[in-house]
Structures are given as C-alpha cells and as structure tokens.
Amino acid sequence: MIPRLAYVAALMVALTGCGTVVDDGSALGQTVAVFRPGQADLSPRFLALFRADAPALQVGFVDLETSGNVLLERQDGAFAYWISPEGAQITLQSGLLHSTRGFGEGLLASDLSQPLALVLGMQSGTSDRFHTYLDGEDRAVTRTYRCQIINDGAREIDLFGTPVDTRLMRESCRSLDQDFVNLYWVAPSRGTIVLSRQWAGPVVGAISTRIVPR
C-alpha cells in the first residue's frame, strides 16, 4: 500500500513538470542556471544613492506588513523615481502613486491629472483616474476608476517626532469590480503630501508613504 501511495506522489510530481525519456529542455541552459547567483541582495544603484545621502521616503506595504526606506534616484518634473534596497522602484507624481517596478505588482503607469488637481488643491470633488496594469499574460490593461475626493479637515500628524499641520484628503474610488480608498495628508504650508496611504493594485494592495526629514 505504501509504495502505491509513493507512486501517486511521484506521478503527481511527474504530471506537474517532468516527462518520459524525451528531454527537450536546453541542456546548457539548465546547467548554467545552477551557477547563476541569486539576485544580489542590495542594488548597486541603491548603495550609490545611499552613500550620496539621497533623500529618503519611508514606504510600507500595509497589507503585506513590510516596510523600509526607498531613496530618490531621479526627480524629473513632477515625477520622482524612488528605488528600494533590492532594486525595485515606485514612481510618485507630485506624491501620488504613479507606477511600480519590481514589487510584484504590475502597475505600469497611471493618469492622475484629475485627482492631482483636487488633492493638492485640497478641494472636494469627483474625478476619474486610470491605471494601466501588466496582467498575468504580459498584456497592458488599462482600468478606469471613478473617485470621490473629500477634504476631511485639519489633522495634526507626527512626522518622525515633529508635529505637522495637515489636511486629510480622502479619495474613495470604485470600478466595476474593485474599490479602494486613498488617504493623503497634505501640508498646506509646503503644498505637498507628507503622508499617504494609496492602493497600488490587487497583488500588493495598499502602500503607505511618509516623507523622511533630511
């Protein structure tokens, strides 16, 4: 009886990925794979920025319960490219999450022109936002979300020990099958988002950002 069960286990393994004497994998490829080192732990680009004391942003994956700091690799107009220690990237457009790379989520790009105007203007209103995702079959799929943005009033927040006066902007978005709420704490004195919680997509869920003082 035991050997039979062993067959079953082995057959399941076999059905999932193995075969008869026919072997059509590239032999060279298979062997090279063994020697290929795993992805280096720390990105050289991140290390170079760290040594140059580049601006930092604290990023948390709220649903995945992991967080760390990312460093500013490039500021290009409204777009800020932040790189993580492992070499992944998030791009913020004036503080709003525009795209992600290397974090598992396929957020290729977003069109945030409408929410940007309302959030940074600290005004309530209705807006559309567009996210383009890479789907599981490597196709770019654009999704539209209809959002209600409200000014939720003044909030004093603690930013690494410093109290900061902010306005909390709440953006509630909905598509046919998805919904999420983004929160932005906007400092009127600076006109910038100092703290936020924004939905990246169905894979990693929400991301928090917090400006780290120099």
Binding site: D41, L42, F46, F50, A56, Q58, V59, G60, F61, V62, D63, E65, T66, S67, G68, N69, L71, S84, P85, E86, A88, F103, R155, I157, D158, F160, G161, L168, Q178, D179, F180, V181, L183, L195, R197, W199, P202, G205, A206, S208, T209, R210, V212
Partner: peptide, 27 residues
Amino acid sequence: EVKSWVVPDNIREKAGSGMKPRVGAVF
C-alpha cells in the same frame, strides 16, 4: 480581491513609529 483598508490612526502605527527605519532593509 480588495483588502480592507485601515483607518487613519492605524496607518500611523504601521507607517512609522517616529523612528527612522533601518536603511537598506529589503522589503
């Protein structure tokens, strides 16, 4: 699947305790 979102107070706890997190910690 849209995960439930946390209330603002909750995010403060999660997004930072006022201490600078260790730079170089991978996610």
